[in-house]
Nucleic acid binder design. Structure first.
Length: 596
RNA sequence: GGGGACGUAGCUCAAUUGGUUAGAGUCCCAGACUGUCGAUCUGGUGGUUGCGGGUUCGAGUCCCGUCGUCCUCGCCA
């Protein structure tokens, strides 16, 4: 008989989940708890499908016996007691794991009611993301969202296990820490203890993990939250999770070996895929030269080549101009069979190139052994020969050019390369191209601020002798490496500085005064003074790994409660204005809007 | 900070050149129905067209501003 309870106490506690009953369970008396997924009301007979994390099970209810069924609506929480029965042969549902059975109800308990949800809880949901995130608890009742959470949890466990197998220690480092200059903007946390003073949330636990090396914890890892107050992207959230790793007495190869084992194990155990290891390696210079990117997608063949020398006497003003400038280059990309591309498709490529700083996108098609269209009239016989010999250009091909500073020309062509690969369907989605990019330059020049800055961070060890301040630093390299998967940067690491005098020299080169170094990093320099071992490590983006492994387009899809592009949480409506008392406590006040 | 797209019923969308009472599907509500599984059938409710201003006899539609969402450049040691 139907039971109706006013109290909060549940009577019918589940004996099984909604995903596990099979024909073998026929005849058993069971109790299911779950959410009402669907009600199919035939008058004298009502099918109520219950859902939980594990699946769906159909219950069959006779409304004459269990009148309470009339009250049920979607998303109500219900308990059903009944007998497992094989469905009549004609009514079995092969599409559902539990589709051969049903539970004939003899007791029904409504555990909770639900308002009409703002969207239906169905797998094939097509509703705007912001609403899904505002009601994430409803969204997450769906299999595919749950699956991402479960996948992530299992993956993290595997990562921890592999590190532990190699005697790594997971150490938690502070969330409230000291602000650091350079790098991303810190999230800052004011405090009552010191009105007007702030902690920072970690951009990464970099200095803590290096300090742990000084402590003798020679193998450290941590699955940790990191925070950066910068603009968001589909693959960037203000708070994200890193697999942070550091090893003492280790060289680059040692770091690679451990990470290769972690990644191959995760792929094997989560997806049953054997990723070959060791992963291929490519220097930064080679990656820029061949692919125009420091995170090349090597799943398809298009490669850039250089025409600077062949174009030295070019009649084309754009080439002349590029080559006349310091660091200028003429680079090219051959698109096999690209002769069939429409003007519109080429224009789209040009738009991509311009987005990445190119001023235009010269092109020619090759037909009948000659260059046609685009800038063909400027292409000399010598240049055409170079296109054929160096780029392999042949009849039916399209060749596009980048003429600018080497970096800009390379990057723009590299992005067009990616665009074309997607446009022409050149990417095999099944491929998994894991790649180490090595030998990064230690410094890059910041044109806006007119100074050298660390490419990775200021704690990376130089491989060569450091020049005097003011000299060109572009040729200094480091054991500085990125792990790239299918054109996505999964992580970045380096062998660190362990000698305090070298660390001071680097601070000096990037324009940090000794006073500032003492104030910001004195504590760390002191640690280096007491026998810091040689060490190095890496940090991998956990969210990105999960996103890529699941083939999802956004980091938001693998984070339980992600933030929107403006850094807001649609569920909790954070951030929110500070209360006057809060500001008073920490000794801060808000500037008038005009002064911000 | 810059560029682009979008914003109409709870949800997903439509609405001709600026022109009658802003429609459809779905959800929801009511009724019917004993084998459904996107149940079906009948009927019904539901709108500050994101917000503010402007042009016009007349604005969902055009203009300006603003807010929000998504993508993106810069930025992200």
């Amino acid at each position: 008989m139907a039971r109706k309870r006013r109290g909060a106490r549940m009577i019918l506690q589940r004996s099984h989940t909604c995903g596990e009953l099979r024909l073998a369970d026929e005849g058993k008396t069971v109790i299911l708890n779950g959410w009402v997924d669907a009600i199919r009301d035939h008058g004298g007979l009502i099918f109520v499908e219950l859902r939980d994390r594990y699946g769906f099970t159909q219950t069959v209810i006779d409304p004459a016996k269990l009148a309470g069924v009339a009250e049920l609506k979607p998303e109500y929480v219900a308990a059903v007691r009944g007998t497992v029965r094989a469905r009549p042969a004609a009514n079995r549902n092969a599409a559902k794991p539990t589709g051969e059975v049903e539970v004939v109800a003899d007791q029904l308990e409504i555990l909770n009611r639900s308002k009409v949800p703002p969207f239906e809880v169905i797998e094939e949901l097509d509703t705007r993301e912001e609403l899904r995130l505002e009601y994430r608890y409803l969204d997450m009742r769906r299999r595919r969202v749950l699956h991402a959470m479960e996948f992530r949890s299992r993956l993290t466990q595997i990562v921890r296990r592999v590190f532990h197998e190699h005697r790594f220690i997971e150490v938690e480092t502070p969330i409230l820490m000291k602000t650091s200059p350079e790098g991303a903007r810190d999230f800052i946390v004011p405090t009552r203890y010191r009105p007007g003073w702030v902690y920072a949330l970690p951009q990464s636990p970099q200095l803590f993990k290096q300090t742990l090396m000084v402590s003798g914890i020679d193998r450290y890892f941590q699955v940790c939250k990191c925070f950066r107050d910068e603009d968001l992207r589909a693959d960037r959230q203000p708070e994200f999770t890193q697999i942070d790793v550091e090893m003492s007495f280790a060289r680059q190869a040692d770091v690679f070996r451990v990470i290769e084992e972690v990644m191959t194990t995760v792929y094997r155990e989560m997806l049953g895929i054997a990723v070959p290891a060791p992963f291929p390696r490519m220097t930064f210079a080679e990656a820029m030269r061949r692919f125009g990117s420091d995170k090349p997608d090597t799943r398809f063949a298009l490669e850039l080549f250089d025409l600077s020398d062949a174009c030295a006497a070019s009649e084309f003003k754009v080439f002349q101009g590029a080559l006349a400038a310091r660091g200028g280059a003429v680079r090219a990309l051959r698109v096999p069979g690209g002769g069939t591309l429409s003007r519109k498709q080429i224009d789209q490529c040009e738009a991509v190139a311009k987005e990445y700083g190119a001023k235009g996108l010269p092109w020619v098609k090759i037909a009948g052994g000659a260059a046609t269209g685009g800038i063909a009239k400027f292409i000399s016989a010598k240049e055409l020969a170079a296109l054929r010999e160096r780029g392999g250009a042949a009849d039916g091909d399209l060749v596009i050019f980048g003429a600018d500073h080497y970096d800009i020309a390379s990057k723009a062509l590299g992005q067009v390369r990616l665009h074309l690969a997607r446009e022409l369907g050149l990417i095999d989605p099944k491929r998994i191209d894991m790649l180490w990019i090595t030998d990064f330059p230690l410094f890059e020049f910041n044109h806006d601020e007119n100074r050298w800055q660390a490419m990775h961070h200021m704690f990376t060890a130089p491989r060569e002798e450091l020049p005097a301040k003011g000299e060109d630093l572009s040729h200094i390299h480091a054991d500085l490496y990125d792990l790239v998967l299918n054109g996505n940067e999964l992580g970045s690491g380096s062998i660190r500085i362990h000698r305090p005098e070298v660390q001071r020299q680097i601070f000096d080169l990037v324009g940090i005064t000794p006073e500032e170094a003492e104030q910001k990093f004195g504590w760390f320099l002191r640690a280096l003074d007491y026998g810091a071992p040689p060490h190095g490590g890496i940090a991998l983006g956990l969210d990105r790994i999960v996103m890529i492994m699941l083939g999802l387009p956004s980091l938001r899809d693998v984070i339980a409660f992600p933030k929107t592009a403006s850094g807001a949480c649609p569920l909790t409506h954070s951030p929110s204005p500070a209360a006057p008392e809060q500001l008073r406590d920490v000794g801060l006040q808000v500037a008038p809007e005009k002064e911000r």
